[in-house]
Every structure is written in C-alpha cells, then in structure tokens.
C-alpha cells in the first residue's frame, strides 16, 4: 500500500504522474487532505528548497517539483475548501510600479506556495493603489514587493508608505530585488527582506512570528 512518504518522495522527484495516482489512492485509504498537505507536500517542497539552497539542484528541477505539488493541489484544494480549511497564511506579491522584472518575484511566489501559503500574484508594474485594493480584497498576512531598478526603488518606498497610510498597519511587508538591502528595507519601514528565493520563506515566517 502506498504511504504519505511515497507522495512526499514523488513530489521531491517531480514525478507528476505518480502524484496523480497517489493522491486519490491515499485519500481513498482514509487519509485527510490536510494531512497530505502538511505531511507530504509542504515537507517535500521544504526538502526541494533546501536542496536548491545548497546548490544541489537547479531551478528547472525545483519547478518540476512545484508542478507536481500543483498537480496534487488541484485535487486537494476543493476538498480542503469543502472542509472549511483555508491556508494559514495568505500572501500578496507584485513588482512595483514602473518595473517589469519578475523572474525573482515569481521564484519567491513559488517558494511561498511550496510552504503552503495562499499566494496571489499581482504581476508587474503594480501601482500602490492596486496593492491597497488587493489588500482590502484578500486581507493577506504578508505583502511582498519586488524592485530591480534603482529608479523604481522610490516606488517601493512610496508603496510601503501608501499601504501604511491607508491604515493597513498590521500586514507584514516584505521587500526584495537586486538593489534592495536590509538597511534599505529598514529605512523604508518594511518588516522583512530576503536576498534570495530560498530564504524568502524563512523571512516571511520570521516577519509573521511563526
């Protein structure tokens, strides 16, 4: 009989086909959807993230695992919703106004999804007003802002200020992008910063105090 461990291994190895057969099989055997998520999928992505951080695998390999997880989530998500189980944390992410760079931001979104966050990606060139609108709609716990140009760093500063001025004082704001530093993050009043996707999960958890 297949086990939760098999599912975890299948995700780590990016074997989508196996995932596709394992998920219904495990559900049928009586395992709760939430257990599959917390004991197989999230730990699997944790392993993959760790391997990537240690330069054991490349992004394409990491994304194969992410897609395998997504395959499982396609089945699990409706069931979790039915059972009234929502992801513990919701995150918004976007690249600030004037900036089109998104490779780094997309990787951060992937890692956050891997950690079980519900991630809403607002895309690129996102004005402050759009962030605020989305905060009001989705009530996220974290908002990630990305900027890759020195000339869009001011837009990041303005976005942080605008979100705070709009009264959203408790949502945690995380920032990143090549020109961004911890000291810049402190200076503009962000709650967290990470220099790469691999540490973005830790940075988010730290900001959330979990």
């Amino acid at each position: 009989m297949s086990t939760i461990e098999d599912l975890k291994t299948a995700v780590i190895n990016g074997r989508r086909k196996d995932v596709k057969t394992l998920v219904p099989e495990l559900l049928e055997s009586g395992i709760e959807p939430s257990a599959l998520l917390s004991q197989a999928l999230i730990p699997a992505m944790g392993v993959v993230g760790e391997r990537f951080k240690n330069n054991e695998i490349f992004v394409p390999e990491m994304l194969v695992s992410a897609r395998a997880m997504k395959e499982a989530m396609n089945v699990l998500e409706p069931k979790l919703l039915e059972a009234g189980i929502r992801p513990e944390h919701t995150a918004l992410i976007g690249t600030v106004e004037g900036d089109l760079h998104d490779i780094g931001k997309n990787l951060v979104a992937t890692m956050w999804k891997g950690a079980g966050f519900d991630v809403i990606d607002l895309g690129v060139n996102v004005p402050a007003a759009r962030f605020i609108e989305a905060i009001e709609e989705h009530k996220p716990h974290i908002v990630g802002l990305s900027a890759l140009l020195t000339t869009t760093m001011p837009a990041m500063r303005d976005t942080v200020a605008a979100i705070r001025e709009a009264g959203h004082t408790s949502v945690k704001l995380l920032v990143g992008g090549a020109p961004i530093t911890q000291s810049y993050a402190n200076e503009i009043g962000a709650d967290g910063y990470s220099r790469d996707a691999a540490s973005a999960v830790d940075a988010a958890k730290e900001a959330l105090g979990v």
């Binding site: 020195t150 000339t151 760093m153 001011p154 837009a155 020109p179």
Partner: peptide
C-alpha cells in the same frame, strides 16, 4: 551610465 536612486 545611469542614474542613482531617483524617481524619474
């Protein structure tokens, strides 16, 4: 060359 941190 390019600009330092300035909003254009």
């Amino acid at each position: 060359f390019t600009l330092p941190d300035i909003n254009i």
